[in-house]
Amino acid sequence: MIHLVKVLSRSPEETSELGKIMGGILTGGDIVALSGTLGAGKSVIARGILRALGVEGDIPSPSFVLVAQYEGGVPVNHIDLYRLTSPDEALGLGLEDLLGGDSVSVMEWADKIESLLPEARYDILLEQGRGPDDRFITIKSADPGLRKRLMIMGKLLEGFGR
């Protein structure tokens, strides 16, 4: 049983492509929590996910507005908690109301409010690899249903049965 998907991305383009594949498996109500250091590629993978969800046009970083809402093929919340100083502040933003429902939420710097997030979510961690553009991308979930979908994604990327 595969519990997580781990891929080495060799470029921002590949990271974006993985985001698009990830976006393809999401459905309304899903939450994607992105973590990683500054410059790890959270925005790159987030934009890939949003594109796959049918968001068109510019996707500016929501760092200053914290939340940007889009109407793709499904409603999408793009959340960036970089400027957040405490989890309490997230409650003030009405984050609890944003998450779930019919919207897909893609959250950058999600580790800042990990304690507030529901367990039914995808966690994506981006880490620096050996080369300057190398990133280890780990996708996992504690939720059995979501984990099943991840297992399928892992099979896709690894070449089935093997």
Binding site: I21, G24, G54
Partner: peptide, 13 residues
């Protein structure tokens, strides 16, 4: 969306 994600996943690398 899912069809294309499957196709892209298969083509990836």
């Amino acid at each position: 969306r899912v069809g294309l994600a499957i196709a892209k996943g298969i083509c990836f690398r």
